[in-house]
C-alpha cells in the first residue's frame, strides 16, 4: 500500500532476482515481527508495576550483569556484519570464523539469560508470582527463543560453508541470517532500556 512509487523490481521476461526477492520478503517479515515484540513489550509496560506479593523489578534486577550480557549481544552484531562482509567478498574462510564467533556470542548471551532466570526463580520470581513475572519471563524468553533460532541458523550456515553446500541461491544465506540476527539484537536494545534500565 505504500508501494505507489515502488521501483519496478521485475526483470525483463518475468525473471526476477531471487536474492533480491528474498531480502524484500525478509524485511516484510521483520516489519511483522515489530508488531509481535510490540505486543509483548506493551504487555510488559502494562504489568511492570503489578508485582503483587512478589519482588519488584528494582529489587531483583542485576543491572551490571545484564549490561554485560547486553553488550555481548550488541558486539555479536559487529561480528555478524563482518561475516556478512566476507560473504559478499566470497572470502569463505573469514566468513566461517565470523559466523561462528557470532553464534558463540549468541550462546554466551543465552547462557547469561539462563543464569539470570535461575537466579530470579531462587529469589522468588516465577511466571506465576505476579503479572510482572509473567510479562517479564515471556517477553525475555520469547526474545531468547529468537536468539536460539538465530544461533541454529548461524551454525547451519557456517557448517554448510564448510561442506560447500552453501549456494548463492540457497534458501538460507548469510544475507538473510544477518538481517534476522541484527533485528533480534535491535529488539534487545529496546528491551534493555524498557525492561531493565527504566526499573533502576
Amino acid at each position: 500500500m505504500t508501494a505507489m512509487t515502488t521501483p519496478d523490481l521485475a526483470g525483463p521476461g518475468g525473471h526476477h532476482d531471487v536474492s533480491e526477492a528474498r531480502k524484500l520478503a525478509m524485511w516484510a517479515f521483520l516489519g511483522s515481527e515489530v508488531l509481535l515484540f510490540g505486543s509483548l513489550i506493551t504487555t510488559f509496560l502494562l504489568y511492570r508495576t503489578r508485582v503483587g506479593d512478589g519482588p519488584s523489578a528494582a529489587e531483583i534486577f542485576d543491572i551490571p550483569f545484564t549490561s554485560i550480557s547486553s553488550f555481548i549481544l550488541l558486539m555479536s552484531s559487529l561480528t555478524m556484519v563482518l561475516g556478512h562482509h566476507s560473504w559478499e567478498r566470497k572470502d569463505w574462510r573469514q566468513m566461517r570464523v565470523w559466523l561462528l564467533a557470532t553464534a558463540g556470542l549468541g550462546m554466551i548471551f543465552l547462557a547469561g539469560q539462563v543464569f539470570e532466570f535461575t537466579e530470579f526463580v531462587h529469589e522468588g520470581l516465577t511466571v506465576s508470582t505476579s503479572p510482572f513475572g509473567s510479562a517479564f519471563f515471556v517477553l525475555t524468553g520469547f526474545h531468547g527463543l529468537h536468539v536460539a533460532v538465530g544461533v541454529m541458523m548461524l551454525m547451519a550456515t557456517a557448517i554448510m560453508g564448510f561442506t560447500g553446500k552453501l549456494r548463492e541461491d540457497g534458501g538460507m544465506n548469510v544475507g538473510l541470517v544477518g538481517l534476522y540476527w541484527h533485528f533480534v539484537d535491535v529488539v534487545w536494545i529496546v528491551i534493555f532500556t524498557v525492561v531493565y534500565l527504566l526499573a533502576v
Binding site: W27, V34, V81, I189
Partner: peptide
Amino acid sequence: AKFVIVVGWYMHLRYEKKAYRRLFYLGL
C-alpha cells in the same frame, strides 16, 4: 540512536531500495 545505527548501517537499510525501507517502516 542505537536502534537507528544498527538498522541503518549494520542492516544496510539506508542503502536499500525504497520498497524494503517502507515495508519495515510500516511496522515501525
